[in-house]
Design a protein around this nucleic acid. Structure first.
Lengths: 218, 218
DNA sequence: ATCGCGTTGTGAAATAAATCACAGTGTGAT
DNA sequence: ATCACACTGTGATTTATTTCACAACGCGAT
């Protein structure tokens, strides 16, 4: 159990949410093509993904839903809940904060930071807002390993540096700049503007070229 | 000028913003390795991207910044501003709304929709909020070709159907479900939970494996 | 029991994307 | 005027990811 492609990690997260819904419907088994339809992929890809994580189904019944959830949990979640720190309580930061409160039990935003005196000291989405110059201290003391950068592009690098100094190992970056971080820190960029411009491009060009659209409708 | 890889489209959007900053600094030329450093890619990739869009620089001075911006504009933007419709004025929807107001001149969110009586009729981020059952009519009348889905997963498919019925050709989807749309509609998914879980995974595993981190420091 | 069908697991092939590496070129220094 | 250097443009190569395609399997029907 070693090298799992980056793309597969993403899909596992997706599968898990789908499987959660199936579980709520009391489904005990799924076939690869069911998950393919639900996740927007292909059956072969679903099977390949489960092969790479070493989960095996039965040709007759398909995959056991609970078993799948269990192995994905083991894969993606750590043994205990991972605390997250979020910097930038603007519109976007607040959206992420409220969106995440209580959503994934294993991931919890435990500290937020901002430089606006009106926000510091308050509780937003059940999460205390600290002064931004406390990032390093709080991150270190709370053993936060995951940071969210939701500040304007101009200050994103500075914030990332603070997070890294505090000991963060992974950053979810909403700012449209390439963060420079040490090699052992992982950065995932989520660039809304870029995604919007991609959509605009394909909407204009007639999306025939777009690779994203595998689904069709009756 | 025909087939441009999906990934390249995304990077062009990124380059354009970087070039905008350079322009503001009165820089007239850039080298591929400058853009590589600024965008978090490699010099070879930058050159390849410009090759695929058919822009050519000079070995001595590099690429002309204005020329690049111009060709990227031609590539990504249409001749006139493209109106956008956004459904779901929750935390996320509001964040996108305010974030986009006046940011990209060629993309303008002209209509928002919600089912909350407290929101309908108001102006949020300079954008009127309509009743959600007017999506199809308003989209058609305003000739909106781009839709943003920022509603809970349970109703995302329904909303997508309305947008498509109104004539939308591309959708930016924040809901964590695979939307089923006709083949000629492009869907770009932006899944915050998935991205967060990827970060959590690599933060836990020691990101040695992560592909994202090309940048280093010090 | 036995057969047939639909599904899994997976090597092999295809496709997509990134990187290498180097010839060609123009500029500034001498 | 000539030279050396740094950079571009790009064919070739490598690497990553997806898809194909088929053997193996086990259940349900007969």
């Amino acid at each position: 159990m070693a090298l799992i492609p980056d793309k597969t990690i993403g899909r596992l997260s997706l599968y898990r949410r789908i499987l959660g819904r199936l579980l709520a419907e009391r489904r005990t088994h799924v076939h690869s093509h069911d998950l393919a339809a639900l996740s927007g992929g292909t059956a072969a890809q679903v099977r390949r993904d489960f092969m790479t994580v070493g989960y095996t189904g039965s040709p007759a019944r398909g995959y056991d839903v609970q078993g799948l959830v269990k192995i994905i949990d083991e894969m993606l979640d750590g043994p205990d809940v991972q605390p997250i720190g979020l910097v930038g309580v603007g519109n976007l930061g607040r959206a992420v904060l409220t969106f995440f409160s209580g959503r994934r039990p294993n991931l919890k935003i435990v500290a937020a930071f901002d430089d606006d005196p009106d926000k510091v000291g308050r509780l937003i989405g059940g999460c205390p807002v600290h002064w931004v110059n406390e990032v390093e201290r709080v991150v270190r003391e709370a053993r936060i390993r995951i940071g969210v950068v939701a500040v304007p592009a101009e200050v994103a690098q500075k914030v990332a540096d603070l997070l890294v100094a505090g000991g963060v190992r992974g950053i979810l970056n909403f700012a449209p700049v390439a963060l420079r971080v040490p090699r052992n820190v992982y950065v995932e960029d989520l660039d809304v503007t870029m995604s919007m411009e991609k959509v605009a491009y394909y909407a204009r060009m007639g999306s025939a070229a777009g690779q994203e659209e595998r689904r069709d409708e009756g």
